[in-house]
């Protein structure tokens, strides 16, 4: 049986919890064999393969909730603090380059001090450095140097999450108001 090119790397990366980005040659191979890989991951691991226009990743019901929650806190706080500075956070996350010092500055002066202090991944500069390493290994960010990084299109997963969460909250409020 012939397997697609980069088969081993595609399976390895996805099972290691990485996003495969459109800029990666593996992405084209993955996209060209969507049906095969969709079935492969479903039948073999019971994972669902989600291929968007610019990234692909595996979804597992047995999600690592702590990591997922920490990434959400990190991106959510970043958006909030950028907006507080009067910046268009979507543009910033999509195009700007961040450096560790800027992140430290934003987090150390954040009003969400309790949330940050109680989170082992984000509580101080050293912890955040490690956390940025985790994001880099999963291709959520792209490290340009030891201290600088940009977000990859994988950030959209989290923006969609926030948008859906807000919609859910709004609906919930409407239902509650109607009930009153």
């Amino acid at each position: 049986m012939d397997f697609p090119r980069y088969h081993k790397e595609i399976v390895g990366d996805l099972l290691d919890g990485k996003f495969i980005l459109a800029t990666d040659a593996k992405f084209i191979e993955l996209k060209n064999n969507t049906d095969f890989y969709g079935k492969f991951f479903k039948e073999t691991f019971d994972f669902y393969l989600d291929i968007k226009s610019d990234y692909a990743y595996l979804i597992s019901e047995e999600t690592m909730e702590m990591l997922s929650r920490d990434i959400c806190i990190f991106i959510g706080l970043l958006c909030y603090e950028l907006d507080k500075e009067g910046k268009n956070f979507l543009d910033e996350i999509q195009y700007a380059e961040f450096d560790a010092e800027q992140i430290d500055n934003l987090f150390d002066n954040s009003s969400y001090v309790d949330l940050i202090q109680n989170n082992n991944q984000l509580k101080n500069s050293e912890a955040r450095k490690q956390f940025i390493g985790t994001l880099n290994r999963r291709n959520i960010i792209d490290r340009n140097s030891d201290k600088k990084f940009t977000f990859t299109p994988a950030y959209k997963v989290f923006m969609d999450f926030a948008k859906n969460f807000a919609k859910g909250k709004l609906q919930q409020n409407t239902v509650e108001e109607e009930a009153e």
Binding site: G17, F45, T63, L67, G76, D83, R138, V157, A162
Partner: peptide, 25 residues
């Protein structure tokens, strides 16, 4: 809308199920 979502989420992140992030197996 996204910012509203984050603000609501940050109020109580422990009680919210986050998006599915691929897990290293």
């Amino acid at each position: 809308m996204i910012l509203t979502g984050w603000i609501e989420f940050l109020k109580n992140p422990d009680k919210v199920k986050g998006p599915f992030v691929p897990k290293s197996k």
